[in-house]
Simulated scan of single mutants.
Amino acid sequence: MKKLLGLIALAVGVFLLARCTSHSGENTASTPAAPVEEVLIELFGKTLFIDYGTMKAEVRYQSDSLYWKTFTPEKVLTGEGCEAPSYGELGDGRFFVSWQEADGTAISQFIDLKENKVLANILAPLKSKDDVRKPQVLEGAAAVISDAAAPPVHP
């Protein structure tokens, strides 16, 4: 019985040793890894259609300006403007954009072009001293509808 247990243990040991050797025997250090080509994702020149559910937006991002239009869910135009934004590139297709509209509304967007998502924070100015400040956070799905640096169109 002891001999049988010893043979089983030896067989298991040889099996495990063979598996470890076959995996560790691969010499990956001598095989150079193929260089990973990083694709640079640009925001400038893109026009995004953003569906926030309760609101739709079309935004064209230029290096020195930003053009926007907002719509109801039924695509009825509710506003448009041209703004001077502040851009921050976060890397890996992600951007932070902020601007203030003529009426004082402050907008901040976190844009992820790899995931096609936009997270926006909208802070409207108080209309009266009794008004309560209520920032609005919207999460939306984004689709690139134009990828060309079009000449500015002033709304």
Rank of each mutant, 00 (worst) to 15 (best):
M1K: 12
K2W: 10
K2M: 06
L4F: 06
L4A: 09
G6P: 01
G6V: 01
F15L: 07
F15M: 04
L17Q: 05
A18E: 00
C20S: 07
T21L: 07
S24F: 12
T28W: 08
A29H: 06
T31N: 09
T31Q: 12
P32G: 07
P32Q: 12
A33E: 09
A33P: 05
P35E: 09
E37W: 09
E37G: 05
V39T: 12
V39P: 06
L40E: 02
I41M: 00
I41S: 00
E42K: 13
L43G: 06
F44A: 09
L48A: 03
F49S: 15
D51W: 09
K56I: 09
K56V: 11
A57E: 14
Y61I: 02
Y61T: 02
Y61L: 05
D64H: 10
S65F: 07
Y67K: 11
F71R: 04
T72P: 05
T72N: 06
V76L: 07
L77Y: 05
T78H: 09
E80G: 07
E83H: 10
P85N: 14
G88M: 02
G93E: 00
Q100D: 06
Q100G: 04
D103P: 04
D112M: 04
N116S: 09
N116D: 10
N121K: 09
A124S: 15
P125L: 13
K129F: 10
D131G: 10
V132W: 15
K134Q: 15
Q136H: 01
L138T: 09
E139H: 03
E139S: 08
A141T: 07
A141E: 04
A142M: 05
A143Y: 04
A143W: 01
V144S: 03
A148F: 15
A150G: 10
P151S: 14
P151K: 11
V153M: 13
V153S: 15
V153I: 14
H154Y: 08
H154I: 06
H154L: 08
